[in-house]
Design a protein around this nucleic acid. Structure first.
Length: 860
RNA sequence: GCCGGGGUGGCCAAACUGGUCUAGGCAGCGGACUUAAAAUCCGUGGUCCCUUCGGGGGCAUGUGGGUUCGAAUCCCACCCCCGGCACCA
């Protein structure tokens, strides 16, 4: 046997190497798919998955946390009788590798594959229980072939389409970005201020699924509430009506979306976004023509930031035209103003200054009429037209404040509450909630409007003018137009090029030989699409490919995917709450609707971990406060590192890294190691656990307490920190009692059982050391043993500490038998000297007895 | 501004359904072992006051109120920190 048998101190490097070799040689974590001869149908399945890493340099502490948490769950589930699939791969396409290539001239594939090797090496070194036969990289042709295949399926279904639209352009990265990748007007990756450009691009119609993406939260088992809320807000569903205002002079109809059709009679002006396509035509030939042009140009130049600036100063110019309000035939003036967004609704709105803050501000600034159409003073009275998202937002804030807020003036305007209508013709006197429906059906019957739902969600822009991504499998032919690449010609391989620098178009455009191709339809000359796909496309289906990664007939076998999906536990950072998680949900829904899989949601349970900081700040190279997991693994071993990460605090929260903390865990693991050594020497493995009493029973009870505590803390709660604390308590208790127990056979057996159980319970966090210690004590492989079960009889205590309070203050503690009757508890409480002192001369007015806990005597 | 999550010893934190506030760890302090140190093992850890040294009492979970026999936990108001969204009609 290896040298670890004779080592005189805990040597993590030797132990970890030993067990990693065992797992590798025996393919311990490999699981077979249904249909294969090794498939084990006797166990229930569990798909445990951590978000796949983007390989850049070496793994950092965030990765260590994700995989430590995920691996603990995977180990725990295996030992609870599940057949666990736990794969790993790399999200290998992407900008950092490409930017590096621009600087160094080294092909991104080289740097990426070096990094993948470093990641793999570290994951092995951490001893994560991965089924490596399922490994994949999204940059491999055998993977992106199927990314392209899915693109074509979406295209066939009309879910991928190309059209011109104003899109976000990052001038630094020289590519377009999806809405989700723009944070406060800045590029998510590099932080550069983005620009708007009018371009023809590929989009996925995620908006088709907006409603389902909202409704299907119901299908999930357990997702963090905040992630669901973030997605709901992002999707931003609003209910209301579309109402058509008509410009008679130019014979133009202007539909608007409103959530408040009940306030239609209060519309006193009409506003278009500066980008609205009709603006130029409207102003042409009027005295305002020039001013409008200037304003529009100014707005185009201004950044999103400037437009939404804190001052909220309302600006705009009149158009010199009027539209007719369909409900009362009134002609109201038109304006252009940048507080109206082209991206939302129709890019035009009816302004109701009396009942909308923004319209009110604008009206004040331009001295426009303000007409109140709803009476009332209670701002909290819910209006009939509030959207579902607004309801989410205001729930819980139903305090009845005495004074309505007076943002505007003495009349309490703008007023956003409910009440009876006034100045509303035939609807006067009706409550606005009632009028809402009537006005909408009236509009409908007149053909001037209809009920409508609006979403904030935009279609997903997937084209990127970059090299290092999956080519979009489309060909342009002068004769046939846009032609999808036939399935049997996939993958469209990424050609090798020399110059990766973006020039406003994809670097692929320079690969002339590659671009020039044959039209699959007519055989004539054609050109390839030179844009590549957003890397979020790659990561939207990788969890399906893991399940059948070697299939070269299809992206996956239906039987296999339907067996394993959905992912039972998904683990990753909360920073993916919107982007990745929503895109993956969309993909699974679209694939489901194409009858390619059963699942409707990819991830049944989601766990989002908090971020680890150091010195209270986010780790970054520029700050110089990064932690190198590789370095700490060298110093303390993977077990210490992984256990420390899980012990810092609840994994859902962040935590501040300290080197001393890792050392503390290392000391604890060494303590368990020494306990194991000592117990092996001092006890016989054959000893039986026969009816222990006294301290032996005490230790046995503590052991069962720890089993119970660790079990409950791991699974439903993800409270790994308290689970580990419980094992520490067990180890401490064993140290305290062991010397008195070695003497007799039963005592020795209990000590041995306690030590083995500590190793067994800590195994999900420190798998190598625990395999070692458990093998010494039990001669078995701990991962093959079922998770221990607590004996309920041993969880019951014979006696407990009765707390005695007088007027709710602690006055004594008395050890009593667990089955003591209530009346006797009171007598015992009254018998306490210290209690007597506090009762002194006073009358007991009440006796509160909580059996198993306390007695409280209320005196006066 | 809105939404979500937080605020407990010197620090990370525990406290499940309202029932002993501070489990476990880090740092500190004391002791044992040692020529000494490291390592290890044991002990001690909110604060103030009284003590015949056995102990006893007051105050303590961001602040101020409330409900309750009893509140870190429930309710109300406020302060601070973190994350997200933000002219969405």
């Amino acid at each position: 046997m290896p040298e670890t048998e004779t080592a005189d101190r805990y040597d993590p490097q030797a132990i970890e190497r030993k067990w990693q070799l065992v797992w590798e040689a025996e393919n311990t974590w490999v699981v077979a798919n249904p249909g294969s001869p090794e498939f084990d149908a006797s166990k229930p399945k569990s798909y445990v998955l951590e978000m796949l890493p983007y390989p850049s340099g070496e793994p950092h502490v965030g990765h260590l946390k994700t995989y430590s948490v995920g691996d603990a769950i995977a180990h725990f589930r295996r030992r609870r009788g599940f057949s666990v699939v736990h794969p790993m791969g790399y999200d290998a396409f992407g900008l950092p590798a490409e930017n590096n290539a621009i600087q160094t001239g080294v092909h991104p594939r080289i740097a990426t594959e070096e990094s993948i090797a470093a990641f793999r090496e570290q994951f092995m070194r951490w001893g994560i229980s991965i089924d490596w036969t399922r490994e994949l990289g999204t940059h491999e042709p055998s993977y992106y072939r199927w990314t392209q295949w899915i693109f074509l399926k979406l295209y066939e279904r009309g879910l991928a389409h190309r059209h011109e639209a104003p899109v976000h352009w990052c001038p630094k990265d020289q590519t377009v970005l999806a809405n989700e990748q723009v944070i406060d007007g800045h590029c998510e990756r590099c932080g550069t201020l983005v620009e708007l450009r009018q371009l023809e691009q590929w989009f996925f119609r995620i908006t088709e699924y907006a409603q389902q993406l909202l409704e299907d939260f119901e299908l999930l088992e357990s997702w963090p509430e905040n992630v669901i809320t973030m997605q709901k807000n992002w999707i931003g569903r609003s209910e209301g009506a579309e109402v058509v205002f008509r410009c008679e002079e130019l014979d133009l109809d202007f539909p608007v979306f409103t959530t408040r059709p009940d306030t239609l009679f209060g519309a006193t002006f009409f506003v278009l976004a500066p980008e609205h396509p009709e603006v130029e035509r409207l102003a042409a030939g009027t005295e305002h023509d020039r001013a409008v042009r200037e304003y529009v140009n100014e707005a185009a130049r201004a950044t999103a930031e400037e437009r939404a600036g804190e001052e909220h100063q309302k600006t705009g110019v009149p158009l010199g035209r009027e539209v007719t309000n369909p409900v009362n035939g009134e002609r109201i003036p038109m304006f252009v103003a940048d507080y109206v967004l082209m991206e939302y609704g129709t890019g035009a709105l009816m302004a109701v200054p009396a009942h909308d803050d923004r319209d009110y501000e604008f009206a004040k600034a331009f001295d426009l009429p303000i007409r109140r159409v709803i009476e009332g003073t209670d701002p909290e009275d819910e209006t009939g037209g509030s959207s579902s998202t607004e309801r989410v937002a205001t729930a819980g804030s139903t305090l009845a404040s005495a004074e309505p807020p007076r943002i505007g003036d003495e009349e309490g305007l703008p007023y956003s509450g409910a009440g009876p209508l006034i100045n509303s013709g035939p609807f006067d006197g009706k409550h606005n909630r009632e009028a809402y429906a009537e006005i909408v059906s009236w509009l409908e019957s007149e053909g001037r409007g209809e009920p409508a739902v609006n979403f904030r969600l935009r279609d997903w822009l997937v084209s990127r003018q970059r090299y290092w991504g999956a080519p979009i499998p489309i060909v342009y032919c002068d004769e046939c137009g846009m032609v999808p690449v036939p399935e049997d010609q996939l993958p469209v391989l990424l050609p090798d090029i020399e110059d990766f620098a973006p020039k406003g178009k994809s670097p692929l455009a320079a690969a002339e030989d590659w671009v020039r191709t044959e039209c699959p339809k007519c055989g004539g000359e054609a050109r390839r699409e030179t844009d590549t796909m957003d890397t979020f496309v790659d990561s939207s289906w990788y969890f399906l490919r893991y399940l059948d990664n070697r299939n070269d007939e299809a992206p996956w076998a239906r039987e296999v995917v339907d067996y394993w999906m959905p992912v039972d536990q998904y683990i990753g950072g909360v920073e993916h709450a919107i982007l990745h998680l929503m895109y993956a949900r969309f993909f699974v829904k679209a694939l489901h609707d194409m009858d390619l899989l059963d699942a409707r949601e990819p991830f049944a349970n989601l766990f989002t971990q908090g971020m680890i900081t150091r010195d209270g700040a986010k780790m970054s190279k520029s700050r110089g406060n990064t932690v190198s997991p590789a370095e700490f693994t060298e110093r303390f071993g993977a077990d210490s590192l992984r256990t420390y990460i899980c012990f810092m605090g609840p994994p859902i929260k962040g935590g501040d890294w300290t080197d001393e903390g890792v050392e503390g865990i290392f000391r604890f693991l060494a303590r368990l190691w020494r306990l194991g050594r000592e117990v092996v020497e001092r006890t016989e493995s054959s000893a039986t656990l026969a009816a222990p009493a006294g301290e032996a029973r005490e230790l046995l009870a503590k052991t069962h307490w720890a089993i119970d505590k660790v079990t409950r803390d791991i699974d439903p709660r993800f409270q790994f920190n308290t689970a580990i604390s419980a094992v520490m308590e067990l180890v401490n208790e064993t140290y305290r009692l062991k010397d008195g127990l070695y003497e007799n056979e039963t005592g020795a057996a209990v000590v041995r059982f306690a030590a083995a159980t500590a190793a067994s319970l800590l195994f999900p966090f420190a798998p190598h050391l625990c395999s070692e210690v458990y093998e010494w004590l039990e001669g078995k492989r701990v991962w093959e043993q079922p998770w221990p079960e607590a004996d309920p009889a041993l969880l019951e205590r014979d006696t407990y500490m009765l707390v005695v309070q007088v007027n709710g203050k602690l006055r004594d503690r008395i050890e009593v038998a667990s089955d003591t009757a209530e009346s006797e508890l009171v007598e015992l409480a009254k018998g306490s000297d210290n209690v007597q002192r506090h009762l002194d001369g006073k009358a007991i007015v009440k006796e509160i007895v909580v059996p198993g806990r306390l007695v409280n005597l209320v005196v006066r």
